[in-house]
Nucleic acid binder design. Structure first.
Lengths: 128, 128, 128, 128
DNA sequence: GTGGTCTAGACCACG
DNA sequence: GTGGTCTAGACCACG
């Protein structure tokens, strides 16, 4: 596991988002064991306290659970995972559409720009 | 002028974005005089140092210019304003499309969600 | 036997309290044999060390006794059971009255709230 | 300010509860400035990180707010303070009545014990 | 001056 | 072995 860190957000937030994405896309499934604080800290070369903070927040969101003495696990509540996915998507969408409107773009402009972006993206990867 | 502040970003960034939007949509036109640090600080009930920082950054981006002894003005270079508009839109778009893909949405999903969002938005305001 | 575990207290404490209550209300009478560590661990799906710890503490309080080679038994000293009951009730009472006073409730407030609570409780269960 | 620490709960929880009580009983009123992390740490002879943790949690409960660069303040939302008071009282009450019933006490027993407790308490302080 | 983050590391409770 | 708490202290962003 590797994460590209940037300086715009605290490391614990970046790791949080990375893990939430892993869970949302199913790379980490419901009930899967999560690496221990110590192991993940070693792997990412980050202080264990920072990892601890990440997990604390994930637990508060209900997406991760501690089983005492056994370690941490992805929640088995699939509805919680769906909720997180929807929350994350809704926030991205709001921020985007809201921001574009504040810049003076119309609904039609916005749709057109997104269509271009996903088409370019596909071409960049797929070729032909 | 009022701004809804949140706690996710520094205040000076929030004021910066607010002013850039005002300029991009033409509420503040090229060559217009900008409120003084003192006045804006009083109006927003913000520490003048924070306003100072905002203007410093806006100047660094070339969208605002100081005329010694006369005050600060929106740049008269319309191309600079267009550049800022494009930069802001591009960043919103990248962040959005990139984020959605990381959550597992396809290009088609993304376009559909945006179409819904702009349609709802229109209905919410205009109605028909 | 099933216990609703929460995360606010160690599991061994929760099991301890559960067993003490069973004894205090007579579900487990003086001299009754207690399930073996092995069996109870299997039944509750808990690490046997945790059950071991529970029994160790119960023995320290004198409410459970080990008969070598025969297993563990509820004490035959009824006075010990009465003492435990009083201790548990006194602690609940102190914590409650003390806590309410620290929140600014008067004695009269406290009595009234308790009267309501036991009345509601009765209605919820008994009806009419 | 002095707090009697015990070992049954983490220090940050004990400080949290202490502050919540101060706010609930009005010793710290809505909008009052709270001591800085550094000052409170020095006063209680506790590590600043521990105080930081306390405030983090209080903020999450909405009873304390950070004004960037200015310090922390008791929320001005009196309804939030009332909510906290009710939550704390309800938890005490539930824990008490629930616990007593599990020990086999009837509603009448419970009311009688509470009446005695508040009467004794009054005598202990006031005398007659 | 104020809070926020992060590192480094100890120690302990729990299972 | 695992997470939870706490200490000690650096450094930085913000106002």
């Amino acid at each position: 596991m590797t994460i590209e860190f940037d300086n715009n957000a605290p490391i614990y937030i970046q790791i949080m988002n990375y893990m939430k994405k892993q869970i949302v896309i199913g790379k980490l499934g419901p009930g899967d064991k999560i690496e221990s604080v110590r192991d993940l800290a070693a792997e990412l070369q980050i202080n264990p306290n920072t990892i601890q903070r990440t997990f604390q927040e994930l637990e508060r969101e209900g997406i991760v659970e501690t089983k005492r003495g056994l370690g941490r696990y992805v929640t088995e509540e699939e509805s919680t995972i769906m909720r997180i996915k929807k929350e994350m998507a809704a926030e991205l969408l709001d921020r985007f559409v809201g921001g574009m409107k504040e810049l003076g773009f119309t609904g039609a402009d916005i749709v057109a720009l997104v269509e271009d972006a996903v088409r370019d993206d596909a071409n960049a990867k797929g070729g032909a």
